[in-house]
């Protein structure tokens, strides 16, 4: 039943950070936001040490079995396995770029998605673009290994516009962080 160690490790790291950090200081709050993002790239290192995951068709989720790698303006594009919201690629932005005038959030929720071209899993950071009204184009809600609020870094409903000048949600990007084993 224990399937996704990387997620559990990520959760542990975030919780440990949160536990050690007094949230009363604005600096510590900002620090957590800034620290949380670079923590995630460490995850694949831990993941690589784990036993080799099963990437056969039988082990893939319904999303992964049907994902494509050609069109990042469609909900079934492989990196979007746990995205929720408007695709920035449909809003004048790109896969890792905010549309003009919008600001990327330094923190994000994450997903582990399988690239159909090489069959490998990658860690994807879903960074919200903030500071403009909701884009409204290409709404997607994919839920591979998406969990509930007590594991917020794996929850795709939270407005992740922390540390930005405005918390208004505009659209979501899917930034490739690295291989996930």
């Amino acid at each position: 039943m224990k399937l996704f160690d990387a997620d559990a490790i990520g959760e542990t790291i975030l919780r440990r950070l949160a536990g050690r950090t007094s949230r009363r200081g604005i600096l510590s709050r900002a620090g957590l936001a800034l620290v949380a993002a670079p923590v995630f790239p460490l995850l694949p290192v831990s993941r690589a040490q784990a036993s080799k995951p099963d990437r056969s068709a039988e082990a893939k989720t319904a999303f992964a079995r049907n994902a494509q790698s050609k069109d990042d303006t469609k909900c079934d594009y492989w990196r979007y396995c746990a995205i929720d919201g408007a695709l920035c690629t449909c809003c004048g932005g790109g896969i890792h770029s905010c549309p003009p005038g919008a600001e990327p959030s330094p923190v994000s929720w994450v997903g582990t998605c399988i690239n159909p071209d090489d069959g490998k899993a990658y860690l994807i950071a879903y960074r919200d673009c903030c500071g403009k009204p909701a884009c409204g184009q290409c709404g997607c809600d994919n839920t591979d290994r998406e969990t509930q609020l007590y594991t917020p870094q794996l929850n795709n409903d939270v407005i992740w516009c922390f540390g930005t000048s405005s918390m208004e949600y505009h659209c979501s990007t899917a930034v490739l962080v690295g291989a996930a084993g």
Partner: peptide, 21 residues
């Protein structure tokens, strides 16, 4: 501060309880 927990319910006479990661 409630690191790693969310989704609360009132706990009568005590305070509240919440699910944790």
């Amino acid at each position: 501060e409630l690191p790693g927990c969310a989704s609360m319910m009132p706990n009568p006479g005590i305070g509240f309880s919440a699910l944790c990661s």
